[in-house]
């Protein structure tokens, strides 16, 4: 049951899952907003790793035509392109979250989520 066969894609996939779990854990247990944002970024990175792992082909090389890759099997270019999109959007979301954190800090003079009690339902 604990036997993973260990080609490259599996290692990357498992690492991605672990990163998602640790990111979720960080978001759950921390009260500090900045730490929650760091947890979000960890989770984001984990998702990217999983997507890249899903596109890997055994023995594949980067999908760029060059003399060096002549006739070699290429990895799937579509997940790479999607991850490129996902990274940029993750960056945008993180920027907005950080500016909210700055705003909260200005208003409450603290970064703890407990001080935002009026938002709780």
């Amino acid at each position: 049951m604990f036997e993973f066969n260990l080609p490259l894609a599996n290692i990357v996939l498992v690492t991605g899952f672990l990163l998602i779990l640790s990111g979720l854990w960080a978001m759950f247990i921390h009260k500090n907003i900045i730490r929650m944002i760091i947890g979000f970024s960890l989770m984001d990175t984990g998702i990217h790793m999983i997507m890249v792992a899903l596109g890997y082909i055994t023995g594949g090389t980067a999908p760029i035509f060059d003399d060096a890759v002549d006739g070699m099997q290429m990895v799937d270019p579509v997940p790479s392109a999607l991850v490129l999109t996902a990274i940029v959007i993750g960056l945008g979301v993180t920027a907005v979250m950080l500016s909210y954190a700055v705003k909260i800090h200005q208003a409450k003079n603290s970064l703890s989520i407990d001080d935002c009690a009026e938002q709780k339902w």
């Binding site: 080609p7 599996n10 082909i57 055994t58 060059d66 799937d76 270019p77 579509v78």
Partner: peptide, 30 residues
């Protein structure tokens, strides 16, 4: 792990360079 491409990716890898003339396939897709 996958051992071969399928569907649309197959098409991109085989025809993409000829069709769009870009060496970097990720760029053609993006």
């Amino acid at each position: 792990e996958r051992s071969e491409l399928s569907g649309i990716s197959q098409y991109y890898v085989e025809q993409g360079a000829e069709e769009l003339g870009a060496a970097n396939l990720v760029t053609s897709v993006v």
